[in-house]
Design a protein around this nucleic acid. Sequence first.
DNA 1: CTCTGTGAAAACATTCACAGCG
DNA 2: CGCTGTGAATGTTTTCACAGAG
Lengths: 225, 225
Amino acid sequence: MPHRRDIPKPAARRLSLYLRELSSRLEQGEETVNSKALGLSLGLTDAQVRKDLAIFGQLGHPGRGYRVADLIASLRRIMGRDRAWTACVVGAGNIGRALVSYDRFRKEGFSIVAVFDGGAAMVGREVGDLKVRPMSDLAKAVAVEGIELGIIAVPRDSAQQVADALVAAGIKGILNFAPRRIVVRDGISIVSVDFTVALEQLAFQVAGASEPEDVDADPEDTTHG
Amino acid sequence: MPHRRDIPKPAARRLSLYLRELSSRLEQGEETVNSKALGLSLGLTDAQVRKDLAIFGQLGHPGRGYRVADLIASLRRIMGRDRAWTACVVGAGNIGRALVSYDRFRKEGFSIVAVFDGGAAMVGREVGDLKVRPMSDLAKAVAVEGIELGIIAVPRDSAQQVADALVAAGIKGILNFAPRRIVVRDGISIVSVDFTVALEQLAFQVAGASEPEDVDADPEDTTHG
DNA sequence: CTCTGTGAAAACATTCACAGCG
DNA sequence: CGCTGTGAATGTTTTCACAGAG
């Protein structure tokens, strides 16, 4: 398997989409799929799909295509999805609460095991089947419960401070929903999702729509390896 | 101003980040900024910043940098942000409700003026200062209230159907939070945000972290022009 | 015949490095 | 000087097109 550094960045993003589409096809009972069909479902060319998958060696079968179940297993291993992950959410506002209750995370193997909030008003309340805990519990919780990922769902102005606390507590990666760039030390990964940026990209496209085009945009993400 | 088709896709995504950073600097009272400083805040090189901004002509002042307020005004015009946008949310589950209550949208000029839900149990309830309406109201509401954008926050299996209803109602663009690819006719734009994909990208990075690297991922988006 | 994996070519995006404006 | 705008050089990603496996 190639080192992560020689996986083209755009390909890494598409890997998640292949996995999502393949899972859906597996549910439908499909046993094999070819690059043409897979590409069609995702708005990609067949060549693109083959190039992406060939990065990891011989995943397909000439003349027959790819075996759906096998390809899913390979991609899950490649993506680090062949094991469970634990995460905590910081911020019990509208977004934080929605994320804690987002069932798909658990179904996909990402367990949210704690929610924290900096405001006394929120601490102690129930969110999903968790109780909101004070920020002062963060460090111990991360250590004791072995929490690996942190999800930031606090307002812009406290986001960096929360990120610092997460890193200090020993978290390895951060999913950031606050509308600002988060800076962390090397070794910590960050992926950011900004709803306003997403909506703005949509406005940009709608405002200037006129030519047929197929684009692929993403969350802003930064890895410090 | 160049046609939208000759704006590099990655540059279009960065435009939103410039705007976000510039607004923050304006709040701080900064009057000018140079490409070096702007790039530093966003993890980009100065050359990159200049190339992106130069797409639209002479936005800067040699020897002085860029005037923050002027650059914001230019970018807003370019992005279609020099006017208000109206949107509706479909799906009053956890995510839909969080989006309706997300204040930043309104502050940035995106007004959510209606929420719809297909389930009788949700219809009639209050979400933020809106009342959840039945799907049967969608077409008329879009027409009467001139709603331009639709936000999909329903489960995967009803997402395409909701998209079809939005398009039939006359919506011009869709922000999709359901975990599947949405297909629409030419002339309709789509931007998708998938929380699981974002978290998976993070797991991928963390699982294989070892080399320093700076990546930029995004929401999946598709424009049909 | 079908369909993968893959070099080679083309398209695209970023970085360099500098002329020239203020 | 300081800093933009920009060709030219470099690096990266996608597309093409085909050899070869089943």
